[in-house]
Design a protein around this nucleic acid. Sequence first.
DNA 1: CTCACATTGTGAAAGTTTTCACAATTCATT
DNA 2: AATGAATTGTGAAAACTTTCACAATGTGAG
Lengths: 223, 223
Amino acid sequence: MSAPSYPEAILISERTIGRLAQYRRILTELVRDNLETVHSHQLALRCGGSAAQVRRDLMVIGAEGSPNKGYKCAKLLASLAEFLTQPGTQKVALVGIGNLGRALLSYSHKQQPGLLIVAAFDIAPDKTNKVIDGCRCFHIDTLESVIKEQNIKVAIIAVPGEAAQLVADRLAIAGVRGIVNFAPAPLHLPPSVFVENIDVTMSLEKVVYFAAKGTQSERNKSA
Amino acid sequence: MSAPSYPEAILISERTIGRLAQYRRILTELVRDNLETVHSHQLALRCGGSAAQVRRDLMVIGAEGSPNKGYKCAKLLASLAEFLTQPGTQKVALVGIGNLGRALLSYSHKQQPGLLIVAAFDIAPDKTNKVIDGCRCFHIDTLESVIKEQNIKVAIIAVPGEAAQLVADRLAIAGVRGIVNFAPAPLHLPPSVFVENIDVTMSLEKVVYFAAKGTQSERNKSA
DNA sequence: CTCACATTGTGAAAGTTTTCACAATTCATT
DNA sequence: AATGAATTGTGAAAACTTTCACAATGTGAG
Ligand SMILES: NC(=O)c1ccc[n+]([C@@H]2O[C@H](COP(=O)([O-])OP(=O)(O)OC[C@H]3O[C@@H](n4cnc5c(N)ncnc54)[C@H](O)[C@@H]3O)[C@@H](O)[C@H]2O)c1
Ligand SMILES: NC(=O)c1ccc[n+]([C@@H]2O[C@H](COP(=O)([O-])OP(=O)(O)OC[C@H]3O[C@@H](n4cnc5c(N)ncnc54)[C@H](O)[C@@H]3O)[C@@H](O)[C@H]2O)c1
């Protein structure tokens, strides 16, 4: 017996996972447009990377293309979808129904296959106990019970910076394993919770800097 | 005489610039709270990095701290502000007054010292020729003239993906040198224009992946 | 005044990510 | 069938980023 002692599941970098998600989005379009096959350099063009990088990324999920013909769109899309976990499957919670929160609700709602925000929370009574863009809005007091009831594992934080850590702690205790954080404050959480920060002000300041000084190529990318 | 032939202005990485912007934000708070000095490890805690990294970052702008006492908050803030170009100085344009665009307008408006959105554009007549959150909204047809008139160098794109490249081209021709792009499409522009992509869907998918699989530490960060 | 200590500044090591470059493979055409 | 052109898969190099670790340096206590 003894656990098979896997070759220690090769861990895949955050960067690579992000790009794989992009490839999925692109392939969804290609398949919709009835494209049969696609070359690495075409994918590179559509995501802003290099062909070599596309091939390397696809290597990690064991995708196979054929020389001179490239990758089969449908097959590759299926591989990516399986690898990344089906979209639409994951239920997402939103905390903070302010200006940004409402934009995200309308966005989630519109996305075709995308991730779905199924519950939103706020502390302001006038924002709760209603349905916005098809999503039920609850008072923050019910956060734990709703998250557990619906077995939600992913959340988005869109509350003011001062409230972010408190909200994050509660989410983590309620069982959330991954958070997208829009508040400009670092979250201190156990490493079992994955956090992705989106800091719009920081991005703007970067752009201001490089717009003023000489630019720095528009390489790499994305949040 | 002869131009001093600078030691070839050491080019500073995008990552570092982003963190310097974070330090500035943190220091603004510290100064507001009348803190005299700050240690590298305190800054690290408040931005989610390591003390060594903070020191290395500050090194590139030639900041000086004193052993055992750390950095002088006021002086460091001044150095950062000078290095990054004064905030509030830079005028920003917004293209796309949809759900996200309006959230950004209200945000810009609220930010204390922050970057200021001074002109917004949309193609829909019902969104233009009014003032939202203190920002004048114009029809997209007037983009070139307004941008040139106000000498705007930085813009935010918040239009649907299909329109993004077209808008970007027009911005670049009008003289914009840096763009924050929220549309999930890569922009192909001359390298003299700096582009920072913020891809919310990609970030969410990353979080979904790492929430499902074992996590990957909440290291590094931000957009 | 001297000592013990906390902290900076930084060269060098370690780690990570991207790019290069090329053999192997497939397909279209002759 | 053989040739040539295009493209994949991937080891190895290059480039870049972070961490380590420690000498140098102020600071405050005794
Ligand atoms: N608006 C933007 O475009 C934008 C862009 C980038 C980042 N952000 C960040 O996103 C966050 C939200 O921004 P916003 O513009 O939507 O602000 P907002 O003030 O419009 O909305 C914040 C919402 O959070 C709610 N809230 C406050 N404390 C709470 C708590 N403890 N629990 C639950 N809900 C609480 C408020 O009632 C409000 O509805 C802020 O941290 C902001 O810095 C906003
Ligand atoms: N809403 C979100 O939370 C969110 C999050 C991440 C990314 N995004 C992306 O940001 C962009 C905008 O999202 P949104 O939710 O605000 O969409 P939206 O449909 O609410 O707004 C888009 C706006 O762009 C305008 N527009 C369309 N074509 C234009 C053109 N050629 N020139 C000028 N204006 C034009 C429309 O009139 C509309 O007002 C999209 O690319 C979306 O994928 C949105």
